[in-house]
Computed example of a mutant assay.
Amino acid sequence: MARAVKAGGKAQLLVAVLVGVFVAQPQASMAGDSLTVFAAASLKETLSTLADSWKKETGQEVKLSFAASSALAKQIDEGAPADLFISADLAWMDHLDKAGELAPGSRVDLLGNRIVLVAPAASTLKISIAPNFDLAGLLGKERLAMGNVAAVPAGVYGKAALEKLGIWDSVKERVAQADNVRAALALVSRQEAALGIVYETDAKIDPGVRILDRFPETSHPPIVYPAAVLKSSANPQAKAFLAYLQAPKASEVFKAAGFTALAKSN
């Protein structure tokens, strides 16, 4: 009987060890899972470049999901799995912060940008942006492409600038609102809209448009791209990748694209 008990004890110990091994395996593999980043549409090219560099240096894959900041924030609200969020404005990051969705201490103001007035590349229009400039006259019966002015950051900034300059009421009926800034840019590039308000960084990458002028920085709230690790993230690489985006090498990539690097690496 004693031998049977001892044998049973050894069997139970073996089972416990095996169970421990199989339980530990998924936890270990989680560290190797790809990193998921939700980011504003205007960051597509620069973040893709930096994600490729990160993979070459660390072997860690980064999955990038681009859309309007408003759409991404709402997806996070609804439980979409993401490790890092980079917004094109402060308001949507504030929204997630107030909802308790951000990892404490991880939020940083990463980048700055400018908004510009663009026309199709073949356009011969010339304009200097100033209070009460004749934007309505330039449009005629054509459309002004913008991001959704109630939700998409580029649209919010654009509307604020037009209001500050005293011309919003004269053009608001001519606005073609798009789901994100890249969609607004495409309307101008395809000559489906005569003019558009987009980020300067977007205009620089599309040969189908040309910049007519920058909006004065005093005509709208500062354009700031905040970034933060999400509280729900279990990926230990999330904080490391955010630090990577603040390092000098990444800052040079952002600056080359026309962004202003705001964050200082530690």
Score class of each variant (00 low, 15 high):
Lys231Leu: 15
Lys231Val: 11
Ala183Cys: 07
Trp92Gln: 12
Asn266Ala: 15
Leu18Phe: 13
Gly79Asn: 05
His220Ile: 04
Phe133Trp: 12
Ile211Ala: 12
Pro236Val: 04
Ala178Tyr: 00
Val21Leu: 12
Pro120Cys: 12
Asp77Glu: 15
Ala40Asp: 15
Ala186Tyr: 05
Ala194Phe: 06
Gln12Met: 10
Asp169Val: 02
Asp179Cys: 00
Ser34Lys: 14
Ser34Arg: 13
Ile211Gln: 14
Lys74Thr: 06
Asp134His: 08
Leu102Ala: 10
Thr124Asp: 14
Gly9Val: 13
Glu78Ile: 00
Lys239Gly: 07
Val17Asp: 02
Ala178Gln: 02
Pro104Arg: 06
Leu212Asp: 11
Leu135Trp: 11
Leu187Pro: 01
Leu185Gln: 09
Thr36Ala: 15
Asp97His: 15
Thr36Leu: 14
Ala51His: 06
Ile211Lys: 13
Asp52Glu: 11
Ser233Ala: 06
Ala41Pro: 09
Ser189Gln: 11
Val19Trp: 00
Met30Ile: 01
Asn132His: 15
Ala41Met: 11
Ala71Met: 09
Lys164Thr: 15
Ala51Leu: 10
Gly100Phe: 04
Glu192Thr: 02
Leu64Pro: 11
Val175Gln: 04
Gln60Ala: 06
Gln191Tyr: 02
Ala73His: 00
Ser265Gln: 13
Ser219Trp: 04
Gly9Arg: 07
Ala2Leu: 13
Ile205Phe: 05
Ile167Trp: 06
Ser232His: 04
His220Asn: 05
Leu96Gly: 04
Lys126Val: 10
Gly59His: 13
Ala184His: 00
Leu245Phe: 08
Ala176Leu: 15
Leu195Ala: 04
Ala82Trp: 04
Gln75Gly: 00
Asp33Leu: 08
Ile167Lys: 08
Lys264Gly: 08
Pro104Gly: 05
Ser123Ala: 14
Ser123Phe: 08
Lys98His: 12
Ala150Tyr: 05
Ala39Trp: 05
Ile76Gln: 01
Val156Cys: 01
Ala122Ser: 11
Ile127Lys: 01
Lys55Ile: 00
Leu165Arg: 07
Gly79Asp: 05
Ser189Ala: 15
Gly105Gln: 14
Ala256Ile: 00
Pro131Asn: 11
Thr49Asn: 14
Val209Lys: 04
Thr36Gln: 14
Ser69Trp: 07
Lys239Tyr: 01
Lys255His: 08
Gly140Lys: 01
Phe38Trp: 04
Val5Ser: 11
Ser123Glu: 12
Asp52His: 02
Val37Ser: 09
Phe241Met: 13
Ala88Ile: 08
Ala68Glu: 10
Lys126Arg: 13
Ala150His: 08
Lys264Met: 09
Ala80His: 12
Arg3Cys: 01
Arg114Asn: 13
Phe66Arg: 05
Val21Gly: 00
Pro248Gln: 15
Ala227Glu: 04
Glu61Trp: 00
Ser123Arg: 08
Ala256Pro: 00
Lys264Trp: 02
Ala41Trp: 07
Ser265Thr: 11
Val156His: 02
Ser42Met: 07
Met30Trp: 00
Ala41Cys: 08
Leu185Thr: 09
Ile129Trp: 10
Asp202Ala: 13
Asp33Met: 07
